[in-house]
């Protein structure tokens, strides 16, 4: 499957040394773990990166509280807090140790809710995949309500009230969404993952090291990709499980192994069938030798961080 992974994002994204693991499935969501080289020296997003304050609606300040290590702000990270206007960011960025950075192009994701986020009770999410393309296009655009129409449309598609409240999904459906962090299980040494929803490529996530990825795990599986998977959750088979054609335990083992091989091939087929092609690359930020770039193509978009020809971070989603 490595060949297929390389063809998915040709050119700027070198995934040399990264390997795909055995797929895991939870309902409609398939996660293919990626292991690979760890790049030391990066502050992890939960323990290193902090929301300092919300200056005004649509203006969010983050700080890198880690003693050392540059922080790569995860693409489309957002913060939820009771009785405060929840915000998400439209882009990634670098924060040096001890640095604060004001994102003036953040978006409110909860129409009509007053109050500013503060440093207390921080838990973060990543925007659902369904909103990420719109959010990426709105990077650099000021206007706290700029994503409300897209959120309202998403709510309607999911049978919820037409409101610019992402909270209708993230908080009210939280008990079922958060189960994805247990339904799928992080592998030791995992630095990334491929996500498929109902058999279609949904996203590729690469982190600098396993600690960084582990801190992104919940936000990615529960919110970035879990929302679409929740909506596509298949019904359990009505007729119960079909037995294998096996007359002994050895035959049963053989049948199970053949069936698994077939399913692995099926997932590889999903990846091979994912749209591919050339991508546009636009540099957005740099820190020493690190480059943050926006990737756009007809089939996918997102942002990547490279160090020379090595990919350090990637958050790419299907369009």
């Amino acid at each position: 499957m490595e060949t297929a992974l390389d063809t998915l994002v040709p050119g700027p994204l070198s995934l040399a040394g990264h390997r795909l693991g055995t797929p895991q499935q939870a309902g409609a969501l398939t996660m293919v773990p990626i292991s690979g080289p760890a790049h030391p020296g990066f502050a992890p997003p939960r323990t290193g990166l902090k929301l300092s304050r919300v200056v005004g609606y649509g203006q969010v300040e983050l700080s890198n509280a880690a003693g050392s290590g540059v922080a790569i702000v995860p693409l489309h990270i957002g913060y939820i807090q009771d009785a405060a206007q929840n915000h998400a960011l439209c882009r990634s960025a670098f924060l040096a140790p001890g640095q604060r950075l004001l994102f003036e192009d953040a978006c409110c994701v909860q129409a009509g809710q007053g109050g500013y986020l503060t440093e207390r009770d921080q838990w973060f999410f990543v925007l659902p995949a369904e909103l990420r393309d719109a959010a990426l296009r709105l990077r650099g655009v000021h206007g706290y309500s700029k994503l409300w129409a897209d959120i309202a449309d998403l709510n309607v598609r999911y049978g919820l009230a037409r409101r610019g409240h992402l909270e209708q999904i993230l908080s009210r459906k939280r008990p079922v969404l958060t189960q994805f962090q247990s339904r799928l299980e992080l592998q030791p040494g995992q630095v990334g993952a491929l996500f498929f929803v109902a058999g279609r490529f949904a996203g590729l996530e690469i982190a600098p090291d396993p600690v960084y990825f582990a801190e992104m795990w919940t936000a990615l599986v529960c919110f970035a990709y879990g929302v679409a998977a929740w909506h596509a959750e298949p019904d359990p088979p009505a007729d119960g499980a079909a037995p294998y054609d096996a007359r002994s335990l050895p035959e049963l083992r053989g049948a199970l192994e053949r069936d698994r091989s077939a399913r692995l091939a099926e997932v590889a087929g999903w990846l091979a069938e994912a749209p591919a092609g050339p991508v546009d690359l636009q540099e957005e930020d740099r820190y020493v030798d690190l480059r943050l770039s926006t990737v756009t193509a007809p089939h996918l978009a997102g942002q990547i961080v490279t160090d020379g020809d090595r990919t350090v971070y990637a958050s790419l989603f299907a369009r």
Binding site: Q25, R183, A241, A242, A246, L252, L256, R263
Partner: peptide
């Protein structure tokens, strides 16, 4: 188990369904 079968989900059910015909 906590019941989260994610490596080839559905396999436990199929294996259990096969056990009687496998003579177990």
């Amino acid at each position: 188990s906590d019941g989260y079968e994610n490596l080839f989900p559905g396999d436990l059910a199929r294996v259990v369904a096969t056990l009687p015909r496998a003579g177990v």
